[in-house]
Nucleic acid binder design. Structure first.
Length: 817
DNA sequence: ATATACACGGATCCCCTATTTCC
DNA sequence: GGAAATAGGGGATCCGTGTA
């Protein structure tokens, strides 16, 4: 049969010792199709230089005879071919050694201890990656496929018969089609249970949201709530059965949750086990499979289970305003919507009239999940297409994995044999490496400045990698003729013959440029996010080379990137200073400078001039013009603080970096007060109003006019309690929570405040109280350790000693101004 | 489990010295 | 009067959270 087809979910199985791929997807009329296919499996044996033809032929014969007996099966080398390939950019002779099953590749590699063989590679890729590379049937791209329909056949042990799809096809050939829209079928879900620990309590309700479909399944009939979205069932067992039934009826491509890898899906599975119900969500009636990790991963056969939290974590968290990645905050930021108001209580404590709210709350969580998926779908799609791994993995992988997968799937264009993953010993050694020197940060002179321009290099590190061809495969052990020389601690040399990694990176940078251009035409949050996501992928490519787990680890390249970057930034600073401007500050790829009464147009001319001298694809861009900006001193000493500044543009929009205002581990009041003062000073151009405001605040604090919430300090636990060497206030707070049976773990955002104790406690931690513990905020602590530190350096710019305002002394210095 | 380095700043830890306390 | 305990100063270290 012939049809169009878009591959969505990839899985594989063994039949008669051979690997087969099982791809679930759709055609344009919405029919669900399963494709079965196989591909040759092989590894590479890279031969040493100058092995004679005769020797090679002998070697091939020897390898062809390899037979391996493992505990459960017998296998052999199927055939051996000689190829001319590249490895790390250098031409090599390599034997392509074919096997029956990809799981045998490791064993075969172990049997290749021949003197003629230099290295063995390509045995650690995984079958799905292998298949996609071999057959180029790429995820989420449209194809015309042709093959034999096997829907009702007994082949492969009757696999197709149990599969809940419209057609099962054994693939003969496929050609890529022009892109057309694909609107996936999405089902969002969310559960509510009494206990947080997986499977400890009963599941009270589960909500499901899809296109024109809203449902809450529950067995809690308290309050007799009537609503058309509620489906009442008898008990938890029926709830689970109804959940399975609903999923099967809707038959989504994507089942979407939030933290559902770590909560909803495993919870459902454990409760199903307890109720002796087979949790057969898969299209082949299989139960979800969980893969161990810090947080388990839940895979459902044929339906892509997406945990939005994971994708947001790797792709967006760095660029978000939200301080936590809770569904509520993320929904607020991306949807302008939030969770329904409902205070969690144990169901036994709920009164009848509260249940309606609970159901609505539960339903709305799924609504948010559904909407978030819609928001992120373009991004998931782009990431999947460019990286070429199944979306299930793309949505969960960290950035290093994404970069590496991108490389792996593009190696064939360069006739490259893949490098292997580092082994345990390599990793240990790599982790001991001293950090290489990073970016250059200019020490600012504290002060309030007027009329500022900010330039920045676009995708700085990646464009240096591309321009100077810096990577593992281009790194030279010794100086060669016509090579690039980089002065780091010693001299590093790189060939000028373009390497595959820099060339691939160029593609990512171009994508990023394209999205940024679109963003400039018309901005919306998702375009911003997408542009940032590609920026992240590009920047991660730089980090990747310095990452100990990378196949293409090359700290020499990373160190060279930053060395070149430091030089170029400094050179550009000098160039700007020479043109009658004054550089105030610079960090890595950005330079802020005073216009010194020169017109903006002139600064843009300078930008053009600089750009004409920049090498390769390196480009300097205008970040913006600003009316005023403030830089302050460090808390210790009187030198200018780096990574701390605030700017205001013509439209009174603030850009605050590094200040306590943007740090979540400071109490709200300190952050608010600092924000207002920065805003006021930058708007007014002087400190008068700000100072008046500050004095009022101090008075109010002293007369206890604020509530405890304003003083709550939030700090995240970054590891298990037992691993802390220093018992800091947030550790004490966490310990207290633990005693009260409140759930804490690595990652928990601990909240506490510093209270009056009446005693002469030396340590801050002795004054810690949890938000709901009765007490009064410690006036002295908050003034001296939160409010004052937040504003002191700002007023110091105007030669004001704020300490005296707190102590209530007369303001002598004020008159001096 | 894990992209990199640079940077700030609070709180505690730890060592040393000076002072106080105890017998 | 001498030894032990305590206080406090200051630098080192831990820790969380930013910027790029």
């Amino acid at each position: 049969m012939k049809t169009d087809f878009i591959p969505i979910d990839y899985d594989y199985f063994d039949f008669e010792n051979r690997n087969y791929v099982k791809i679930i997807g759709r055609n344009s009329s919405g029919k669900r199709i399963c494709i079965l296919d196989t591909c040759p499996i092989y590894l590479w044996a890279i031969l040493k230089d100058r092995v004679k033809e005769k020797k090679i032929q002998e070697l091939i014969k020897k390898i062809q005879k390899i037979k391996i007996k493992t505990r459960d099966r017998e296998t052999k080398v199927e055939k051996v071919e000689l190829h001319e390939k590249n490895f790390l950019g250098k031409p090599v002779n390599a034997l392509k050694i074919f096997a029956t099953n990809y799981k045998d590749l490791h064993d075969i590699a172990d049997h290749l201890a021949f003197a003629e063989i230099e290295k063995r590679r390509g045995y650690d890729l995984g079958f799905t990656s292998h298949y996609v590379i071999e057959k180029k049937l790429l995820p989420l791209q449209w194809y015309e496929i042709e093959g034999e329909e096997v829907s009702n056949s007994q082949e492969f042990g009757g696999l197709c018969k149990v599969l809940d799809v419209d057609f099962c096809v054994y693939l003969n050939n496929h050609t890529m089609l022009k892109d057309q829209e694909f609107k996936p079928k999405v089902l969002a879900y969310d559960i509510e249970a009494d206990e947080f620990k997986i499977g400890e309590g009963e599941i009270l309700m589960v909500s499901l949201v899809s296109d024109n479909f809203n449902k809450v399944i529950t067995w809690k009939k308290n309050g007799d709530v009537k609503a058309d979205y509620i489906e009442y069932v008898k008990d938890e067992a029926e709830l689970l059965e109804s959940f399975i039934k609903n999923v099967k009826e809707i038959s989504p491509d994507f089942l979407v949750g939030y933290f559902s890898d770590g909560f909803d899906l495993p919870y459902l599975k454990v409760r199903a086990d307890k109720n002796k119900i087979k949790f057969s969500l898969g299209l082949d009636e299989s139960q979800p499979r969980f893969y161990r990790g810090a947080i388990p991963t839940g895979k459902i056969s044929g339906i892509v289970h997406i945990d939005l939290l994971k994708f947001i974590q790797t792709a967006y968290s760095q660029y978000m305003q939200s301080e936590t990645l809770s569904l509520n905050e993320v929904a607020k930021e991306f949807l302008g919507d939030s969770k329904k108001d409902f205070k969690f209580q144990h169901s036994s404590k709920l009164e009848d009239h509260q249940w309606k709210k609970y159901f609505e709350y539960n339903l709305h969580d799924s609504v948010l999940n559904y909407k978030l998926f819609e928001k992120f779908w373009p991004d998931l799609l782009e990431f999947t297409r460019i990286i070429q791994e199944p979306i299930f993995d793309i949505s969960r992988n960290g950035m290093s994995n994404n970069v590496e997968d991108f490389i792996i799937h593009n190696l064939n264009k360069f006739n490259e044999i893949p490098e292997k993953k580092p082994g345990h010993d390599d990793i240990v050694k790599r982790r001991e490496r001293k950090p290489y020197e990073g970016a250059f940060v200019f020490e600012p002179k504290p002060g309030l400045y007027e009329d500022i321009a900010v330039f920045d290099f676009t995708s700085y590190w990646p464009s240096i990698i591309v321009t100077y061809n810096l990577s593992k495969s281009t790194f030279l052990e010794k100086k060669e003729k016509n090579s690039t020389e980089v002065n780091v601690e010693k001299k590093f040399y790189f060939t000028k013959k373009p390497g595959f990694f820099p060339q691939m990176l160029k593609e990512i940078i171009e994508k990023r440029k394209q999205y940024k251009a679109e963003l400039k035409v018309k901005s919306d949050p998702i375009k911003t996010a997408r542009s940032n996501a590609f920026k992240l992928l590009a920047n991660a490519s730089y980090g990747y080379q310095g990452f100990f787990g990378a196949r293409y680890y090359c700290p020499e390249a990373s160190a060279s990137v930053t060395a070149i970057g430091r030089d170029l930034t400094k050179k550009t600073i000098n160039q700007i200073n020479k043109h009658d401007y004054t550089v105030i500050y610079s960090d890595t790829d950005s330079i802020s400078f005073k216009l010194n009464k020169n017109p903006k147009k002139q600064a843009l001319e300078l930008l053009k001039e600089i750009n004409s001298t920049l090498p390769g694809i390196i480009e300097l861009d205008l970040e913006g013009f600003f009316k005023r900006g403030i830089w302050v001193t460090k808390r210790s000493g009187d030198i200018g603080a780096k990574k701390k500044y605030a700017l205001i543009d013509e439209n009174k929009r603030l850009k605050i970096r590094g200040f306590e205002t943007v740090r979540r581990d400071w109490c709200n009041l300190a952050r608010e007060v600092q924000n207002k003062i920065l805003n006021q000073i930058l708007e007014d151009g002087n400190e008068k109003n700000a100072l008046k405001y500050f004095k009022e605040i101090v008075k109010k604090i002293k007369s206890r006019e604020f509530s405890i919430e304003e003083f709550t300090i939030r700090t995240q636990l970054k590891k298990p309690l037992s691993e802390y060497k220093t018992i800091s206030p947030h550790v004490i707070a966490a310990k207290r929570m633990n005693e009260l049976d409140l759930p804490i773990s690595s990652g928990t955002l601990v909240e506490y405040y510093i209270a009056e104790t009446g005693k002469k406690d030396k340590l801050v931690r002795d004054k810690v109280k949890l938000p709901n513990e009765p007490g009064e905020y410690n006036i002295q602590y908050y003034l001296e350790h939160q409010i004052l530190p937040a504003v002191e350096n700002i007023f110091q710019v105007f030669n004001l000693e704020t300490k005296e305002i707190i102590d209530g002394k007369r303001q002598t210095k004020l008159c001096d101004f």
